[in-house]
Simulated scan of single mutants.
Amino acid sequence: MLQSFSMWQLNDIDNLDDAIVLIRDMAPIVTNVEWDDEPLVAHFNSIDGFDLNVPETIEIGNNNIRYVTFEFYTERSRRPEFWFNAEGNMKPRDERVNTYNSQILLFEHNNSVKSIVFKGTSLAKTILNTCMPEETWGAVEPAEINVSEDLLYWIFRKFIDLRESPLSPNNPLYVTALKSYTGKTRDNVNAMRGRGNRISTILGTLAFLFNNENLKAVRPQLQYNGEVFLVEISLTGTCRIWEEEYQGRWLALDSKRLKNNIAIYTYIVLLPILVESYRDNVNRGVWSPQLKIEFLQRLGNEIKDQVEAELERLQNEANIEDEEINDEEEHLTLFDILEEDDE
C-alpha cells in the first residue's frame, strides 16, 4: 500500500521520554469560531496495538531506535465565504469544517527527537502547527534531507549506465529499478510522469531528460545490505513507500509496524546514504555539470537511433504489406472465372 510521509526535526526536545510527557499532558485544543455552533477541536488519539507509555524498539545497525506513534485529530474551519448557502443560510457544520486524522511517529536518534507525519509536507506543517505549538514544543522544522534536482538526474544516470555497480564504493547501495519519475516542462505548466518497470529506457523518458526539463521526483527501487525498498524521493520533502515492494528481515511484521520501520529506515539510513553517495561521486569527479551534459548528449544520440530504428521497422512492415497485396492481386487474376462460365 502506498504511504506518503514527511520528515521533521524537533530542535528543542532532547529525548523521547520528554516528548511522551508532553503528549500525555496535552489537553484537547478548543478553538472558538464566530458562529453559533460547536467550537473546533483537536486532540491526540491512541492507535490500536501501540501503547504511548511503552515505546516500540527497532534495531538498525548497532542502534536500538525507540519510537511511539499516535493519531492527531484536528478540525479547521473553511473560509467564511463558504459557510453560507445560496439563500444566505449557514450550512451544516460538516460542510463548514475540514477534518484531518493523521498518524504521527516520534523517535529518538543521535540524541535528538525526530518526527514522521504520514502526510505530505505542506499538510503536515499545518497539522504540526496545531498539535505541537512552538510555545510548548519549541521549533519543529522540516528535516534537512538535501535532495536536489541534480541528485535526481544522477540517480537516472547511475541506473541507466552503472546499475550493476553500487552508488558509491563506500556504500553497498544499488538502484535496481526505476519505477516512476515526475517533472514539469520548461514553462513549468505541463506535468510529466512516467511509470513502469522499464520507464528509464522508453523514448518519452529519454526525451524528457534530454530536453533538460525540471525533474521533481523519482521512484527508485533501492537494494541495501540484502534488503529491497521502493521509495519515491521528491524535492518537496515528501517521500512515498510501498510495503508490498519491501523484501527483507521485517516481512513477518504486521502492516502497521512494517510501515513504521520502513519510514524510519528511509529517514535515517537510505536518504542519508543516498545523499552521501551523490556527494562522494561529485567529490571524486565522476559526476559533474560537464558529465551531466555528456550524459544528456548521449541520450540525444540514443533517441535518434531509436527513432531511426522505429521508422525502419515501420517501413519494412509497410513494404511487406504492399508485397502481400500485390501477390493477392496476381493470385486473383490467375484464377478469375467469368460469370457465364460459373454455372
Rank of each mutant, 00 (worst) to 15 (best):
K119F: 13
E317C: 00
Q297R: 12
R96C: 04
L162I: 11
D17S: 08
T130N: 12
E340N: 10
K179R: 14
R219W: 01
D94T: 12
L16C: 00
F156M: 05
L167G: 00
R78G: 09
I262L: 10
R198K: 15
R79A: 15
D37H: 08
I47V: 03
R79P: 04
G285F: 07
R195V: 12
L338P: 08
F159G: 03
K158Q: 09
A252R: 12
G237A: 03
V54Y: 13
E321I: 01
N98K: 11
Y67F: 12
E343S: 15
K184M: 14
R249W: 08
N15C: 08
V275I: 04
T266S: 10
V228E: 00
V30T: 14
L10N: 01
R79Y: 10
F118L: 05
E329M: 04
H331Q: 15
V68A: 01
N171D: 13
E308S: 08
H109I: 04
F107V: 00
L311T: 05
E232H: 09
Q290H: 12
S234P: 06
G88N: 02
G49T: 00
T121A: 12
L338T: 08
S6M: 04
L230V: 12
S255D: 09
V175W: 00
T130R: 09
D17N: 14
L258K: 07
S102M: 11
L2R: 10
E245M: 15
N64P: 08
F159D: 02
P55T: 02
N326P: 05
I303F: 07
Y278T: 01
P289K: 05
